[in-house]
């Protein structure tokens, strides 16, 4: 009897559909604001990963001893402390990144992804799983940021640059990808941010729809095969 199994989805596929930004629309404010360049995207991404992993770990440790009705303020204090520490380190050791990210560093504390994961996952899982979850979500977020930044930077300025924030923004490499005649200037402005996000969100949505349709088709085929098998078995019994 042949069985029609659903296709196994790879890592990249999962990263696209379970993406906190494009899938759940969490952490949109910072995504739209920071995605102006590759440097900012990477800097912000790593900052969020730092806070997310540590907050998940700490919260998974104190959740068992925290009564339900004060859990929100407690989690908030934990996350806010981590963000303040991050902010102080960034201000001291990577001042260029600090001024590029600006107010959005403190706003990591209200990034829905962090409190969301704390509530949905970290409070009910052990340290290692929580840390892994934080890392995965953080990486997804970072990849979404990088995706949007690359589109905006390439179409808006035609150049991809990478700088080292620890060495006073020394340029690591700078590549002119698109000649000046093909640039779309407003891509670096707010409008470009919204448009890029909308188009990428539609792409993810379309991809998810396609997966859904494939799954439905497979389900239908499975049901038909099962029904057929049942009918055959019934016929065999009668015979």
């Amino acid at each position: 009897m042949s069985e029609i199994k659903p296709k196994k989805r790879g890592f990249i596929s999962k990263m696209i559909t379970d993406n906190p930004v494009f899938g759940l629309y969490l952490g949109i404010c910072s995504t739209l604001a920071i995605s102006t360049s590759l440097d900012n995207a990477i800097g912000m991404g790593i900052s969020v990963i730092f806070v997310l992993v540590l907050s998940n770990v700490v919260i998974s440790l104190i959740a068992p001893i925290t009564p339900d009705d004060i859990h929100i303020p407690v989690y908030i204090v934990v996350i806010a402390s981590l963000v303040t520490i991050l902010e102080m380190f960034l201000h001291a050791f990577t001042p260029d990144l600090y001024s590029a990210l600006g107010a959005f560093i403190s706003l990591i504390v209200v990034n829905c992804i962090i409190l969301g994961r704390a509530e949905a996952y970290a409070c009910s899982h052990n340290i290692v799983d929580s840390a892994k979850d934080g890392l995965m979500m953080g990486l997804s977020y970072t990849f979404s940021l990088i995706a949007i930044s690359l589109v905006r930077q390439i179409l808006g300025t035609g150049v991809i640059t990478l700088s080292n924030p620890f060495a006073g923004n020394a340029v690591v490499f700078s590549v002119q990808v698109l000649p000046k005649t093909f640039l779309i200037p407003f891509m670096t402005a707010e409008t470009g941010s919204f448009f890029t996000f909308g188009v990428l969100a539609a792409a993810v949505s379309g991809y998810k729809n396609k997966l859904e349709e494939e799954e439905k088709a497979i389900e239908k085929a499975q049901k038909a095969a099962a029904a057929k098998a049942k009918a055959e078995a019934a016929r065999k019994e009668v015979a």
């Binding site: 001893i65 925290t66 204090v77």
Partner: peptide, 24 residues
């Protein structure tokens, strides 16, 4: 619990602040 959490946070931040403020 709230008090302890806030106190730990406060102390931690004071420590980090004393390290980073002069650098800044």
């Amino acid at each position: 619990l709230l008090g302890v959490v806030c106190a730990v946070a406060g102390v931690l931040l004071a420590v980090v602040n004393s390290i980073t403020a002069p650098v800044i």
